[in-house]
């Protein structure tokens, strides 16, 4: 399935951003706990931009070939590929904690860096069977947040 790419600026209106992500992901076929996981992970990526990534950026979401992808870009470009920790960091306050959480919640997390911009990509499979674990009827957690 190819879906239109949507993009929003990252501002302190995180509630609206979460609602936009949830609406798009639900329409792309992500449901239940996996939908919750993507919304939590995308929110973490957005607050990383607000807290450590210069305070401004963009969040784009697209769906192609059964993979739902959220791209979160900052305008700083300090975050490097390979920055996602395998093990849970001990401090809850640092950037590594949010990155670790994204890695736990999503099927894949990759970081792309060019001068002046780092982009975190959060990927979730939405194809048949991919959301067996915790699959629930659409709408179970579709309440706007």
């Amino acid at each position: 399935m190819v879906d239109h790419r949507r993009q929003w600026p990252i501002t302190d209106d995180l509630a609206a951003l979460r609602e936009n992500i949830q609406r798009y992901a639900l329409r792309a076929g992500l449901t239940g706990s996996r939908l919750d996981d993507l919304v939590i992970a995308a929110n973490e990526a957005a607050i990383n931009v607000l807290e450590h990534g210069g305070g401004a950026g963009t969040l784009a979401i697209s769906c192609d070939g059964g993979v739902l992808a959220v791209d979160v870009a900052d305008h700083v470009g300090v975050l490097r590929p390979g920055a996602v920790p395998d093990e849970r960091p001990t401090g809850r306050g640092d950037r590594g904690f949010g990155l670790w959480l994204m890695g736990e919640l999503c099927d894949a997390v990759t970081i792309d860096r060019v001068p002046g911009q780092s982009t975190i990509r959060l990927s979730m499979q939405v194809g048949d069977g991919a959301d067996d674990e915790g699959a629930a009827p659409v709408g179970r957690s579709a309440r706007p947040v």
């Binding site: 995180l14 979460r18 919304v39 939590i40 929110n43 973490e44 607050i47 809850r92 306050g93 904690f97 949010g98 959480l101 309440r143 706007p144 947040v145």
Partner: peptide, 9 residues
């Protein structure tokens, strides 16, 4: 409805 890592802190 929602709590992120900052909320946890």
């Amino acid at each position: 409805d929602f709590c992120d890592s900052t909320g946890i802190r």
